[in-house]
Structure formats: structure tokens, C-alpha cells
Design a binder for these strands. Structure first.
Lengths: 230, 230
DNA sequence: CTTGGGGTGAATTGTTTGTTAAAATGCATA
DNA sequence: TATGCATTTTAACAAACAATTCACCCCAAG
């Protein structure tokens, strides 16, 4: 699943550079240029992570950080601070705000990306599904990333596994192709793209799951849902 | 099980920030502001881990560390040192005195929490991993750091052994390249090293383990896992 | 009987991992 | 401090595998 990253930074060049490189790394990005927009955007878009410049016109980074941590809806979004000098980071960290990490400018792209991944990884550990799930004659082991039907291993590719996981996580709700594309493939919402990719993956998944593919139900005109009783 | 963490630090802001964030991570915390109280508290409360500032009023961190390690009751409590400068000497001394890890100020929350978890995991696993493990035709002696396949010694380098140990310890869970870098190469290094390095080490490990390399399974797009039946 | 959504198989394109060798680094010893 | 050896890391290419597109099919609803 492609994570959404909110960039809060007033220097246009840096924003452009970050957007380009983060997209290349497989993240989705959106960016704003000042503190007010940041709070706004964080609330509406629910990004998975925020990159926040300490120096901003108007409301500065520290205040934004504090405000984000205060509100319940945004409190758990991890924040990586961009600080200009390493002196400032002393204060930043010494003070009571709760940024999850900070990177000092000038920063190396590689370091920033490594830190982003690291923060996301740590956050993800918390809200994961049970390690092993049994549904009918199928077992799904999320920690081993392995699926079994009638005690025989089923080799799924990454996309197939993600698809299955997403369907299961939805607990019987119908998921549209757009939703799946957005969440597993990370295509930008602005898609009029005509693609049958989801269908093809559903097909290969069904084929591999054999009898247990009965759980994957096509809902014409809407999408797919995963059906099962506990 | 919620672990109890003792914070020994005189700066109130930092204590507040740490308490807030560690609680959010699911730890219990208690804190004291000087060395005497630290010894006292460690004795009475038996915390699972101590975060110890090097700079303290009165008795300083090094002395506290020494004192804790001397007493039988507190000797086995892991300690993470907070050091102000990144001067090597401090670190070295701290580690010599028996601190389990250190973090230099200004530190990132993420880094500190990662180290706390890593230290706790290590401690917990010490009594979970046997000294010697037999898997198929391979024996791994964790105390001697020696591996044998079909009764013939296999010479592994440090990184190779760590890699093997980490994989085995995960009991079949898939470990991502990023995770392995964080845990084997260590935090700061992991930011500079390519994930492909892991692949190369996996290869040399497989090559040396010959037939028993079958246990090391590539999970495309996710990482590697160690597969075996008890 | 027309239409559009979805199923299917195969060709094409793209991505990830395996493998190798060379460069860089670390480390002990002279 | 220089030297040689072992280990680690990088980089480049090959091989294996996965994702995507496309063309065509079927079927149910109007």
C-alpha cells in the first residue's frame, strides 16, 4: 500500500525536489506552503506522515506540530521535522513537542527517505491484523506472508497478497476498483485511466485459491467483496 | 505485558516529553531527577529498563551506572545512556561500564524508542534462544558463535552470523531488508547503506550453508524468512 | 438482440532478486 | 605508520518473475 505524505514547506524548489523523489520511491505526496494549510490538509486528507519545515511564514513549525499533536484526529500522524541548523534541533528536541524524528538541512535525500521508511515501519507495527487467520479451509499467515488452502501452500505474488489482505480487512464491505487501485497500487485519484488490472489480479488470485475463491464475490457495477462468517 | 521504564534525568522538559511519548508507546514510566534517587528507585521498583542521563547533579550518570551494575539485584537491568555530546570517549566509557546502549542528544524520539525496543527484545530473547540449536543437519552454537553443517565447521563472518541469528530468532516471520539493516547494521549505519547489501550477504550465507540454505526463503517484495519445523 | 460489465489467455513490459567482481573499508601485525 | 589480509559494500549485468495491456469471450439486463 502506497503511503500518503504531506509536505509542509515554503521553499518551492525543495517541495518540487521532494515530490519528485518521494514519488519515485513509491509514495503519494501532497504539499502546502504554510502552517494553516498544513493543519487543514492534515485534517482533511489524513496523510500517513508529515514532513514539516521548522521555518514557515506565519505560524511556525513548532506551533503546527503542537497543534497537530493536540487534536485527536491528527495526534497519531508521525511527523518528521526539517530543521535548518543542528543548533535548533537541540531546542526542538529539548522542548516538549512530539516530532517522531528530525532531519537537519541540508539533508541527504537518502537519509530522509530512510527515516521516512523507518518511521512508517514502526508505526505500522502497531495496527496490524492478527498474525494468522483461518477462513474455511484457508489459512492466511500475515507474519510469514503465506497462504494455505487445504493445508497446501499457495504461492501468491505481492499484489495478490495485498489484494487478499485488503479484501479481508474490509470485512465484507464492497471495495470499488478505484479504491483498490488507490490503496494497493497507489494511483493518483485523478484517474480516468481505463484499466482492467484489478480484474486480472482478482482472476489470478481466484485461480490460485481454488475452492476458497468462493469468498471473493463480484458485485456488478461496484467492485468486489470478501464474504465469510466468523 | 507493559514494561516499566525508569527515567533518570534532571531536565523537566525532557522528562515530560519522554513520559508522554513512552506512555503513548505502551510503556509504564517512572522518573527521578538525580543519582541517589535512581539507585533507590531501581532497587525498590525493579524497572525493566533504565534511561540514564550522563549529566546529573551530584552523582553523575557513570557512577550511577557503575553502582547499578555492582549490586546483584539491579545488575541485570538494561541501561540506555543519554549523552550530551557525541564524543566517542563518553560512549566507550558508558559501554565499558555496562550500559547496553547509548543515544546522543539531541536524539530523535523514534531512535530512542527503537533502541528501547531493541534492547528489551534482546534481553527477552536471551533466555528464549537456547545456547545450541539443531536444525536439520545444521547446528548453531550461539554461545560459541559457531556453525556446523553435516558435522563440518562453517566459518561465518560477523555479519553473516548476525543475519542467520536474526532470521532464526524471527521464527519464520518475514523480515524486510530495511528491518534487517536497522537491527544488524544498526540505526545510523542503516541510513547510509543500500538495501542490496542485504542480498549480497544472504547470498554469501547461502553459499556457505550449502544444502541447509534451503531454510532461507526469499519472499519477493517483502524480504526473507527462515523456514523450519521444530 | 444489443449493450456493457466483467472473465480469460497470451504477448509485452517492467521489476525484483541472484550473481559476480571490483572497490572500499577495517584491522591486526610488523 | 605502512602493509597485507579479510570482510564489507557497491555497482553492473543476467535471470527469473510479476504486472499490465490487449483482444476477444461470455452472459445478464434492458
Amino acid at each position: 500500500m502506497k503511503e500518503k505524505i504531506l509536505i509542509v514547506e515554503d521553499e518551492k524548489d525543495i517541495v518540487k525536489m521532494l515530490e519528485y523523489n518521494l514519488k519515485k520511491e513509491g509514495f503519494r505526496t501532497l504539499s502546502v506552503h504554510d502552517g494553516e494549510d498544513a493543519l487543514d490538509s492534515a485534517n482533511r486528507e489524513c496523510p500517513d506522515l508529515i514532513i514539516l519545515d521548522l521555518m514557515l511564514p506565519g505560524m511556525d513549525g513548532l506551533e503546527v506540530c503542537k497543534a497537530l499533536k493536540k487534536e485527536r484526529k491528527t495526534a497519531s500522524i508521525p511527523i518528521i521535522m526539517l530543521t535548518a541548523k543542528s543548533q535548533e534541533s537541540d531546542k526542538v528536541i529539548g522542548l516538549e513537542l512530539g516530532a517522531d524524528d528530525y532531519v537537519t538541512k541540508p539533508f541527504s535525500l537518502r537519509e530522509l527517505i530512510a527515516r521516512i521508511k523507518s518511521v512508517l515501519r514502526r508505526v505500522k507495527e502497531k495496527d496490524r491484523l492478527p498474525e494468522v487467520l483461518k477462513i474455511g479451509e484457508m489459512t492466511i499467515d500475515f507474519s510469514k506472508i503465506a497462504v494455505t488452502v487445504k493445508n497446501k501452500a499457495v504461492e501468491l505474488t505481492a499484489k495478490e497478497f495485498e489484494l487478499l489482505k485488503t479484501l479481508i480487512r474490509a470485512k465484507g464491505r464492497v471495495l470499488s476498483r478505484d479504491y483498490l487501485l488507490d490503496n494497493i497500487w497507489g494511483f493518483d485519484h485523478a484517474l480516468e485511466i481505463q484499466t482492467r488490472t484489478v480484474d486480472v489480479h482478482i482472476r489470478t488470485l481466484r485461480k490460485k485459491l481454488k475452492s476458497e475463491s468462493r469468498h471473493i464475490v463480484t458485485v456488478k457495477n461496484y467492485g468486489y467483496r470478501f464474504e465469510y462468517e466468523d
